[in-house]
């Protein structure tokens, strides 16, 4: 079977399109590259959606944690503490467990016991908590002058937040947030590895890497392939976040623009 044919058959196998049966014997390198790459679709799906949705929730949580009102501050603090303080591995376990019991309550919750929705919710909460802590740190270090200037212009409430505080917060938090994004994509590999079952052999990149390691009994080929895909993905994330960073800092004079540091202080 030619490699092009393999890509046709298995390129979208992870979402259920293509050959029904996975290769069972005579494994070729092409098959391994194709299927593990196909599984990457899931990693990208989980990462992108959780990150996009988590961004807004994290902003709310960070503002909540900085709020003087304890009714808002305490819940935000606890949410962040619980999700940052416990291993994702255990969060997945509890997530799956809770979703199964919710299912008994009402069929509305049915999708949650499947990975595409359930794991997404867990990852969403997880990345929200981590990003919120980063944003909170940035909120604390917004230069006093910025807010004073806003006050002087008579800005308050929502316009002041939207036009002054939020952009400054993002600028300050961006390097650390880039790291969080990288880590989030890495943690998507845990989805099918613990907690959520794989249906009809549709899984993420690690699932297929595991499948091949299991069938060929040789871990030294599939896992390095997986590693290569993730290094590529990491480079793409760094590239995209770098472009956004440039946008965020475009008003600053050339010399004062902070270079996108890939060596930030705060990592996850």
């Amino acid at each position: 079977m030619s490699c092009a044919q393999t890509i046709m058959d298995y390129g979208l196998r992870s979402v259920g399109i293509g050959e029904r049966l996975l290769p069972r014997a005579d494994f070729t390198l092409c098959q391994q590259f194709t299927l593990i790459g196909s599984g990457m679709l899931w990693n990208i799906y989980f990462g992108v959606i959780a990150l996009a949705a988590g961004f807004f929730f994290a902003t709310a949580l960070a503002v909540g944690k900085a709020s003087p009102n304890p009714l808002i501050r305490k819940p935000s603090e606890w949410f962040i503490f619980i999700f940052r303080g416990s291993p994702l591995f255990i969060q997945f376990f509890f997530g799956y467990f809770c979703f199964l019991s919710l299912k008994q309550v009402s069929p509305i919750f049915d999708p949650l016991s499947a990975a595409w929705a359930g794991a997404l919710v867990v990852l969403f909460f997880n990345t929200s908590a981590y990003s919120a802590e980063i944003f909170y740190g940035a909120l604390q270090s917004i230069p006093k002058g910025d807010t004073e200037a806003a006050d002087a212009y008579g800005m308050s409430g929502w316009p002041r937040f939207k036009r002054i505080i939020w952009p400054t917060m993002l600028r300050l938090a961006w390097p650390a947030y880039t790291n969080e994004a990288i880590f989030l994509f890495h943690s998507t590999t845990l989805v099918f590895f613990s907690g959520f079952p794989a249906w009809q052999q549709r899984g993420d990149a690690l699932y297929y890497a595991n499948y091949f390691a299991d069938k060929t009994f040789n871990p030294f080929v599939p896992y390095p392939i997986l590693a290569m895909y993730f290094i590529l993905l990491t480079l793409v994330i760094i590239g995209i976040f770098g472009i956004i960073n440039k946008k965020l800092n475009r008003h600053l004079p050339q010399t004062a623009r902070p270079k996108m540091k890939l060596m930030p202080q705060i990592i996850r």
């Binding site: 990288i182 890495h186 590999t189 690690l206 890497a209 896992y223 390095p224 590693a227 993730f230 290094i231």
Partner: peptide, 10 residues
């Protein structure tokens, strides 16, 4: 650049 879990596995 590589997820730690992938590293641990091999």
């Amino acid at each position: 650049g590589v997820p730690d879990i992938a590293f641990f596995l091999f």
